[in-house]
Amino acid sequence: MYITITPHKTDGNYAQSSADFVAYLEKENEGKAIIDQEHFFNQYGEEITGAEVIKEIDGNTAKLKKTEPKFYSITINPSQRELKQLQDPKKDLKTYTRELMKDYAKAFNREIHGRAVTVEDIKYYAKIEKVRTYKGTDKQIQENQPYATKILQLKHDIREIQAGRLVGNVKTIENKIAQLEKEAPHQQNGKRIVRGMPKEGSQSHIHIIVSRKDISNSVSLSPGSKHKASEVTMHGKSVKRGFNRDAFFATSEKTFDSVFKYKRNYVETYQGRKTFLKNPKLYFSVLSGLPTNEKATAYKLLSKSGVPIMKIPTNKIQLAIKVINKLKQGLDKAIQSGSIGT
Rank of each mutant, 00 (worst) to 15 (best):
Gly236Tyr: 06
Gln188Phe: 15
Arg195Ser: 04
Ser17Arg: 09
Ile206Ala: 05
Tyr104His: 04
Gln145Glu: 14
Val267Cys: 02
Lys254Trp: 09
Lys127Val: 13
Lys139Met: 13
Ile161Glu: 06
Glu294His: 12
Thr269Val: 13
Gln271Leu: 14
Arg192Ser: 01
Phe260Ser: 00
Ser305Gln: 00
Tyr104Arg: 02
Phe260Arg: 04
Gln187His: 08
Lys55Asp: 09
Lys66Gln: 08
Tyr124Glu: 13
His235Ala: 04
Lys176Met: 15
Lys32Tyr: 04
Ser339Gln: 03
Glu231Met: 06
Gly31Trp: 04
Ile209Met: 12
His156Met: 13
Val170Leu: 05
Leu301Thr: 09
Val131Trp: 05
Asn265Thr: 08
Thr75Ile: 09
Tyr24Glu: 01
His235Asn: 13
Leu282His: 07
Ile151Asp: 12
Thr49Arg: 11
Ile161Trp: 07
Lys333Pro: 01
Ile34Arg: 07
Ile54Asp: 02
Thr67Met: 01
Ile340Lys: 00
Ser18Asn: 06
Ser204Met: 15
Pro146Cys: 01
Gly330Pro: 04
Lys63His: 04
Ser230Lys: 11
Asn265Ile: 08
Lys240Phe: 06
Leu25Thr: 08
Ile215Tyr: 04
Ser303Leu: 05
Asn60Leu: 06
Met101Ile: 11
Ala148Pro: 11
Ala298Cys: 00
Ile177Arg: 12
Glu253His: 08
Gln336Val: 15
Leu154Asn: 13
Asn109Leu: 10
Lys199Glu: 05
Asp332Cys: 09
Val232Met: 03
Lys171Pro: 14
Lys123Ala: 10
Ser222Val: 05
Ser79Gly: 12
Thr233Asp: 07
Gln87Met: 08
Val286Pro: 03
Lys304Phe: 06
Gly236Cys: 12
Lys27Ala: 00
Glu28Ile: 12
Ile335Tyr: 07
Gly59Ser: 12
Lys240Gln: 06
Lys326Cys: 06
Ala298Ile: 09
Lys300Phe: 14
Ala229Pro: 08
Gln203Ala: 05
Asn77Gln: 08
Gln87Ile: 14
Leu327Thr: 04
Leu166Tyr: 13
Ile112Leu: 12
Ile317Cys: 02
Val194Ala: 03
Gln336Gly: 14
His235Lys: 10
Val286Leu: 07
Thr75Trp: 01
Glu26Phe: 01
Lys135Arg: 11
Phe249Lys: 03
Pro198Tyr: 11
Ile128Lys: 00
Asn77Phe: 09
Tyr266Met: 08
Lys135Met: 13
Leu64Gly: 00
Pro69Thr: 00
Ser222Thr: 10
Arg241Trp: 06
Met101Ala: 03
Thr297Ala: 08
Leu152Val: 11
Ile312Lys: 03
Ile35Lys: 05
Leu83Met: 02
Ile321Trp: 02
Tyr299Gln: 06
Lys55His: 10
Glu120Met: 12
Phe41Asn: 10
Gln37Pro: 13
Lys274Trp: 12
Gln85Val: 14
Phe40Cys: 02
Lys182Pro: 09
Lys240Ile: 07
Phe108Tyr: 06
Gln162Lys: 03
Ala105Gly: 09
Asp246Leu: 06
Pro313Arg: 01
Leu152Pro: 11
